[in-house]
Computed example of a mutant assay.
Amino acid sequence: MRAIWNTRWGGPEVLEVRETPEPELMPGHVRVRVRACGLNFAEVMARQGMYPDAPKPPCVLGYEAAGEVEAVGEGVSGLSVGTRVVALKRFGTHAEVIAVPAQQVLPMPEGMSFEEGAALPVNYITAYHMLFRVGNLRSGERVLVHMAAGGVGLAALQLAKTVPGVVIFGTASASKHDFIRKEGCDHPIDYRSVDYADEVRRLTGGKGVDIVLDALGGKDWKKGYDLLRPVGRLIAFGFANMASGETRSILNMIKQAVSIPLFTPLGMMDKNRSVAGVNIGHLWDEIDLLTEEMAALMDLYKNGSIRPHIDCIVPFDKAADAHRRIQSRQNIGKVVLVP
C-alpha cells in the first residue's frame, strides 16, 4: 500500500508517498480500505516539529479516515466486510489501508460521501465537545469563533446555530465573509483590517461574549478572556500563532511562549469567568466519550443540521500542496486527501 510519510521535521517538501507494508489485523480490530482522509492544522504543526504528541519522523500522520471495511478481526461484531465507515485513529490514517480498534469505527449514514466522512470526525468532535460538553452553550448566548472559515470554525458555526437565539461573531479574512454568513455567522470580523476585540465590544455595546473558541493562543487568550461577560468561558484548543511559516521559527516560538497569559483561580473567581482547554488527541483513553459525541454528530448529519464543507480534494501525491493551503489559511472548510 501507499502512505504519506513525514520524513523529517521541516516544510511541506519533507512529505513523501512511499510503499508501505499493510498493517497487521489484530483481534478486536478492523482493516479499512481508505477512500478519503482528513488533514488538520495539527498535522501541519506535527510536520514542522511543533506538535508534542506526534510520533517522531519518519512517521505517517493523520487522525481520521473514511472507507470500506476490508477485513474483520477476531471478536468483532456489528461490522462486516464492505461496510462504509468513518474511523478515528491516533496517527497513521494518511495511508491506503489502516487497522483500527473496532470501537473507533462507526458506520456512515446513507448518503454521506467518503469525503464528508473524512471531514467530520476531528473538526466536528472538537467543536461539539467545546460548545456542548465544556461550554454548556445556552439559548441566547453570544459566541466568538476564531478562524471561523476553517474546519473547526465552520463546524462550530453550524453546531452553535442548532441552539435557538445564539449570536455568533467570527474572525476571518474579508474574502470569506459571505461564505461564513451563509454558514451561520451573524457578525463576520476581518481581523486584518480591525482589532477584533474592539469590534466585538462595539457590536455588543461593550458587553462582550459568553464563549470564546480560541485556537490562536498567546496574547489572543488574554484578549479573549477580557471579552468575556460574567460567567463567560474561554476555551483554548490550539496555538496557531506558534506556526509563522512553512518551517518552525525558534524565535517566534519563544515570542509566543512569553506572551501566554497567567490565569489564576483567584482572578477567575473575582471576574466570574472560566478558562478551559480542549485537546481531542488527549482523549483516546476516553473512547466511549468520543464515540458518544461522534454518534450524536451522525444524528445531526442525518437530520440535516450539519454538513461538512469540503474546501478541496487533494491526491496523496500532492499532499505538500494541501499542507501549504492550510498553512497559508487559504482554505474554507476541510482539506481532504485521497489515495
Rank of each mutant, 00 (worst) to 15 (best):
S259I: 06
A276W: 00
G170C: 09
E293Y: 10
V194P: 07
E19V: 12
S113A: 07
G75A: 04
A322M: 12
A243P: 08
G49V: 08
D178A: 15
P308T: 10
P23N: 06
R90E: 14
V34Q: 01
M269G: 15
Y196V: 04
H129L: 09
G170W: 07
S173D: 10
E22D: 13
K318M: 04
N331Q: 14
V85G: 05
G78L: 01
G206E: 12
G92P: 01
P23V: 01
P12N: 10
E286F: 04
K219G: 01
K318N: 12
K334E: 00
V69H: 05
M253I: 14
K334F: 05
M112A: 13
F132M: 06
N6M: 15
G232H: 02
F179A: 11
V14P: 12
I332G: 06
D288V: 06
V278R: 02
Q330V: 11
E96G: 11
R35Q: 13
S244M: 13
P58E: 14
G38N: 11
F263N: 04
V194G: 00
H282S: 14
G232A: 09
G135F: 09
W5D: 03
M45C: 08
P27H: 03
F239Y: 07
G10I: 12
L289S: 11
G151I: 12
L337N: 00
W9E: 15
V76I: 01
P101L: 11
E116L: 10
F316H: 01
A215Q: 07
K56S: 14
Y225P: 01
D226H: 05
G10T: 12
K161G: 10
M269P: 03
P188C: 04
T264I: 04
R142Y: 02
L144P: 03
I280C: 05
G205A: 03
K302A: 11
D285N: 12
R142Q: 02
I310R: 03
G206W: 08
S80V: 09
A160V: 04
Q103W: 08
I189T: 03
Y51S: 08
R47M: 14
G208A: 11
D178F: 10
L137E: 02
D220G: 09
D53H: 13
M1K: 08
A102D: 06
A174V: 14
G205E: 03
C185Y: 08
M26G: 10
V143K: 01
L106A: 12
F237T: 05
A66M: 07
